[in-house]
Amino acid sequence: MRRGILLRLALVALLLALVLRPAWFAPIFAPFAPEGGPVIYDRASLLSLSLSHLGLVALASAAATLVAVTLAILVTRPAGAAFRPLSRTITNMGQTFPPVAVLALAVPALGFGAGPTLVALFLYGLLPIFENAVTALSNLPPATMEAARGIGLNRRQRLLQVELPLALPVILTGIRLSVVIALGTATIGSTVAARTLGEVIIAGLLTNNTAYVLHGGLIVGLFAVLIYDALVRLEAGLSRRMGLAKAA
């Protein structure tokens, strides 16, 4: 446990240094740069690229969470039951669409820039969250639901005070999956002129500058791993609080 915390702190420190003080790493990356070429990406500040990257992901994931959970609530009510089988098929088949293809298909419809990236991240992010929310909302412990009815809670109160809190850890798992996919897809978004960290990697690939590729790749990879890890711990904490024995 202790070692885990130290490792995480070290990774966070490494990430911050890579983003804020790129010049420190020049000697390490120098062997990978072409002869006499630049070692550290300087066409944009890595901090602003990181912020724009994380901003895109946060915005898309927040919107996807809102819409997906609302849809999941509708589909799990008696009135929306007719849409259940359809929604399962859509989530099952929709997730086979490659994220890159969704991104590429959004460009003809929306043009270049942050717009299509945002839409692709949003659309793709809906599916895992919706799937998990539906699963969670339809597998609530019957005894608890019976008790909630028994103490006279109406439908709205049951939803807000019982069903959603109980479903939260599983919904959060969906959000985690969707955030990790979004982080990766946003990287590719730089090929359609969205400002993300992918810019550094793509610039490296285009100019055969492996130093850029490595630098950008390390930053994106560290962000993804650390965010994933933080969300896993959040889920585990919530599950414990809900008194659900199984930690994620």
Binding site: G184, T187, I188, I201, V213, G217, L218, V220, G221, A224
Partner: peptide, 12 residues
């Protein structure tokens, strides 16, 4: 967890 573009890049 590592984003694909980063993974491809690091393989190079």
């Amino acid at each position: 967890t590592i984003p694909s573009l980063a993974m491809f890049g690091i393989m190079i």
